[in-house]
Design a protein around this nucleic acid. Structure first.
Length: 195
DNA sequence: GTTGAGCGTT
């Protein structure tokens, strides 16, 4: 009278005893043989980032998942016997895990200021980083003459621009930004002759 | 286009 078959909560498979070096791609390829894989995820330790030893394979269709479970369960893959079973809960959010790990014995909730394990600074605290090793460039006349700095298109053929310019209240050319370009090859530049 | 820190031992 009751369901004889434990209704799988979802089409996610829980694979245990997977090789620590197994990747999602591998799982996807192995399980994908029996159906379309929605996603594969291998949970790792939050702190050590090490593979925990099991993985999750989410199928697009639960029927395929059943097939894969039946065919891949207890199958030796990569020298390990895979144990496949249906997943139970849903993916846990970091917050939930934190709560669980927090009460497990660890206590890096308020102690650890760093939220991310990777955010761990170097063992030695950065005492002082020089502001910037500003290189004293010769202020004489070596200004990367090789690079083309000047933008060719100074003005754009935009209708909007045209209108804006008309309303400009400053009829004068406010060109106070050019100083080296204009002087060198702008207008005649009669000062270049060494006389 | 969703979140990635999801069950481990029976």
């Amino acid at each position: 009278m009751s369901g004889r078959y434990t209704r799988p909560p979802n089409s996610s498979l829980f694979v245990r005893n997977v090789h620590p070096d197994t990747r999602q791609e591998d799982m996807r390829r192995i399980f994908g043989k029996y159906g379309r894989i929605q996603d594969v995820y291998i949970p790792c330790d939050y702190f050590t980032k090490k593979v925990r030893g099991f993985a999750y394979v989410q199928f697009e269709d639960i029927r395929d998942a059943e097939d894969a479970l039946y065919y891949l369960d207890r199958v030796i893959v990569l020298g390990r016997e895979l144990e496949v079973q249906f997943a139970e809960g849903d993916r846990k959010t970091p917050n939930q895990m934190r709560s669980r790990e927090s009460g497990s014995g660890f206590g890096y909730d308020r102690r650890s200021r760093s939220r991310s394990p990777k955010s761990r600074r170097s063992r030695s605290r950065s005492p002082r980083r020089s502001r910037r090793p500003r290189r004293s460039y010769s202020r004489s006349r070596s200004r990367t003459p090789d690079k083309k700095r000047g933008r060719r298109s100074s003005e754009r053929h935009s209708p909007d621009n045209h209108r804006s310019r008309s309303a400009s209240r400053s009829p004068s050319r406010s060109a106070a930004r050019s100083d080296d370009q204009r002087e060198d090859a702008g207008e005649g530049s009669p000062r270049k002759s060494p006389e």
